[in-house]
Design a protein around this nucleic acid. Sequence first.
DNA 1: CCTGCCGCTGACAACGTTGTCCAGGGGCTA
DNA 2: TAGCCCCTGGACAACGTTGTCAGCGGCAGG
Lengths: 348, 348
Amino acid sequence: MTDTAPGTATTSRRYGTRPTMKDVAARAGVGLKTVSRVVNGEPGVTPDTERRVKEAITALGFRRNDSARILRKGRTASIGLVLEDLADPFYGPLSRAVEEVARAHGALLINGSSAEDPEREQELVLALCARRVDGLVVIPAGRDHRYLAPEIAAGVATVFVDRPAGRIDADAVLSDSFGGARDGVAHLIAHGHRRIGFLGDQPGIHTAEERLRGYRTAMAEAGLPVDDAWVSLGPTDPERVRAAAIEMLDAPEPVTALFAGNNRVTVTVVRVLAGRPRPVALVGFDDFELADLLSPGITVIAQDSAQLGRTAADLLFRRLDGAGGEPRRVVLPTRLIARGSGELTPAP
Amino acid sequence: MTDTAPGTATTSRRYGTRPTMKDVAARAGVGLKTVSRVVNGEPGVTPDTERRVKEAITALGFRRNDSARILRKGRTASIGLVLEDLADPFYGPLSRAVEEVARAHGALLINGSSAEDPEREQELVLALCARRVDGLVVIPAGRDHRYLAPEIAAGVATVFVDRPAGRIDADAVLSDSFGGARDGVAHLIAHGHRRIGFLGDQPGIHTAEERLRGYRTAMAEAGLPVDDAWVSLGPTDPERVRAAAIEMLDAPEPVTALFAGNNRVTVTVVRVLAGRPRPVALVGFDDFELADLLSPGITVIAQDSAQLGRTAADLLFRRLDGAGGEPRRVVLPTRLIARGSGELTPAP
DNA sequence: CCTGCCGCTGACAACGTTGTCCAGGGGCTA
DNA sequence: TAGCCCCTGGACAACGTTGTCAGCGGCAGG
């Protein structure tokens, strides 16, 4: 309490009056630029002078002010990462991969969550642009990214991940949602299922729509009809998903298998099924930890989220290094991992 | 390819030649400061002038350069978060909580992973200080944070989370590792176990030592001896943990229960136990998703990592708002969640 | 009608760094 | 010994923004 008595009578800023290069120069008895040279390891400084400067730096506790440096140099050596939810395990490996690549290029990572709110996404992205990040990796929440066009034109390299940009043409790195879902549903069909439910994310989200398309395609390819009651799209909060699943399972002609559109849905469905006597087959999009230890193990369509992040960041830095050309769309394959839950056969 | 022909003959910077307030002022036919006023919503501008300025802003695609703003104002409105691994599910809710608080205070989050490497931690922290973040939330990897003393003295508010700072006195927000471990081990003892193994993180890590101390205390309170072979500390990679667990379980006098020192250890132990015929009791530190759906459900000592992050960030911003006083140490309680694996009784 | 005040606007300096350019001195060569 | 060159060091401007301050014009009151 005592050490923060407000209004000390000095005219100095009450806080953060840090030493500058000027102070270091004065103390070392050299010119400003000489300090700059030492700090940046530039050549052309006598060992003796260098020593004096370094002593002054330690004595004063000097630390270069990167804001000034950035202002002068134009590049911030930082990239922005906008994702949906920092706490979603799907984004953990992705973030880390982006960070690794950024680190390898000497860049820091500024990130934030959009919470699936397009407005918040835009707000965040523009704040990052105001910070003059060199580039952006965005997992889009909104469907219209025209607001980014001037930024991209001004040189902010931008790569979209997991979902493509809306209404602008931009680099994107995606998983093969369509193919993955088709494979998963085909897998269920191959094990004898004819009535298969699809529980997905909100319509309007690209991955949700692609996965639904994969489901419909697999069903059509097998010549199976799709009852409207078997498809449920919407928010992935447990309550809604639980209700939707139960409705399909308790219908007069119940589904015998479920396809879950993403990891959160899968987990909720697992909880629902755990409470029911009759086994129901399940395939989920996205792998998750411990999926193999449940009984039965959960069969999933795995996407490599770290690879997604790495690919996106690599592409970003290639752009920053001057790689030109048309916006690219990279689609990474998915992989079906059979663990038991997808191999259950329908009750006779 | 064609649009990046190098060396265009103009003298302009090849990239990022963004319009400035000066450009906007020229286009709108007003002074520089007037533009600044409009951009920052300051009063004292005629509606008509404001309209002209806003038109010029949209026409030119102007976006304020926050680097210059930061340089001028001294505050960056950003905080740094240094954690061990962005991909560890334990840190997801923590990061998100920190981000939420930061957002509520209008600050951005810059973060990075130390990968448990003290050198990398220091490098990252100092880079953040060079960026002049207003504050730092650090999950320390190293044991000596004296390098931070000048920064803290210079006004960088710093809060340590999960583990305290080493060799400096600083704010810290911790979970009750000692009490949690003692409770967990006592729980096993209460269910009849006498030979209990402890699988922990590296010695030197504060939480690892506190949890071990909790284990020893619980054993001592029950008057039980502790065989050296029952305690294994070290890196938490699955191979080492697996080997250590198997050694304890296959000893001539095998342990009948295990206490796992953190979530990664717990998961590895679950995998080990899944392959063995005889049931072994298990209590793990940290809760994790699906712990309840395994059979048996995994009994855990839960710590609220979101609360940890929220508390730390709140404390940080209180410091930034001028709250003084001695460095504080906040310890949050843990909670034992019984799910079955801790309630198994030893084979007769 | 004159004076004084207020509301709006703009000129200017400063934030801390880096790039450019020039000066001075010492060593080497002719 | 003189001249030249290179090596080291420093003065200065510029990056884009904001805070300070002063000027200008209009309006109200005396």
